[in-house]
Design a protein around this nucleic acid. Structure first.
Lengths: 202, 202
DNA sequence: ATATTACCGTAACGCTTGTTATGCGAATGG
DNA sequence: CCATTCGCATAACAAGCGTTACGGTAATAT
């Protein structure tokens, strides 16, 4: 071989990183074989040994996106509404890394909506995310942190809120700074939580 | 000329409709000169007389999208929180027409996020939409429909919620039927409204 | 040591894209 | 009525795309 096995493993990681970099800098529609090859300072001939065709590259890129989203560092869950709060904060583009990830997700929606199979896959992905939130909502209800009501509905509500906030923050990062995002999320959580005693009545 | 002035005006409308149809069926990334020409049963030579280059076509398409979004039929505003509710309902993909429009918007986010100028333009657009909502929030507060609090924040909150709900509904229309969307919006509005007397206490 | 195999660059292909030059016919204007 | 101008098709171009065939080089196996 031209390289040892260890080198080959390293090369695989290089390929992943190149795919990621291309998606982050040129968007999902900018994910092209030559762009990845250039990022690797290589040619398209290299990529034929890793992906049989373009569709395989796209599939791999989506898997990479999902994997890096799933394996990112997460806040400790805590109990009750704290666990819900942690899950929602983990979704927001509060850091460079999560901003990049969210940007790629949003930029992939165009192709996802054009491909029925991808549309279904995305729908399932968001449904699963919603299921996780639903469990945390139910747990928070058990502890009395959230008022009664269909946890599925409440989960869909908070998911929509966070998803929309992500989009807003990507387009106007200066108007939706990390602290502002957190502030808006806190206000939203406060609104759906059990009504607190009225503050400062007069 | 090959056509009279009236024919030319009609042709302009045909071009608009073709651009719209291409965006709706093939997504924003599928908006290509030949696709528009094919939709018109014409060639690219025709389009050179309407758009000097591709960028002009894209700009026109975005203007068309904005115009059709702005000039769509709207619910009567009503007073207080009713006006806010009407504005939010107008944003949801509840009909064939609004689904199509929202799909095009979402599919345009990829290119918009890749182009700094477009990113700014989109940020301004959403800021303006937020300003409209802010006024309605403030009016609703005046009438006591909404609790006190920075109307700018509350507007940002409801906008995020609706935006996220739009995305969810586009990916999973069967899980987010029109009635379900309305239900979720109602629950959200109820959550942020002034706390009602407890229902059915036992 | 020689043959084999894996890795990857080179280069070409057919296709689609935006762009441009050219030509023709029909409506317009003097 | 004829010259001009406009509207559009035709067609070619370079650039970028995914795909494929081919060679060469280096590590491995016999």
């Amino acid at each position: 071989m031209a390289r040892t096995k260890g080198d080959h493993e390293a090369r695989r990681r290089d390929v992943s990183e190149a795919v990621w970099q291309v998606m982050a800098t040129r968007g999902f529609s900018g994910l092209t074989l030559r762009a990845v090859a250039d990022q690797l300072r290589a040619t398209t001939g290299l990529l034929t040994h890793y992906f049989p065709n373009k569709r395989a590259l796209v599939t791999y890129a989506l898997d990479l996106l999902e994997e890096r989203t799933a394996s990112r560092p997460r806040r400790p869950a805590g109990e009750g509404i704290e666990a819900l709060r942690a899950a929602l904060l983990d979704m927001l583009p509060l850091t460079e890394e999560t901003t990049s990830t969210n940007r790629i997700w949003v930029s992939s929606w165009d192709q996802a909506l054009s491909d029925p199979d991808l549309t279904d896959a995305y729908a399932r992905k968001y449904a699963q995310s919603r299921a996780t939130l639903r469990d945390r909502v139910a747990a928070a209800q058990e502890l009395g942190d959230l008022p009664p009501g269909d946890p599925e509905h409440i989960a869909a509500g908070v998911q929509s809120f966070v998803l929309g906030l992500v989009v807003q923050a990507l387009f106007a990062p200066s108007a939706f700074t990390p602290s502002r995002q957190i502030e808006l999320l806190e206000e939203h959580l406060a609104a759906i939580a059990v009504p607190r005693p009225l503050e400062d009545p007069h």
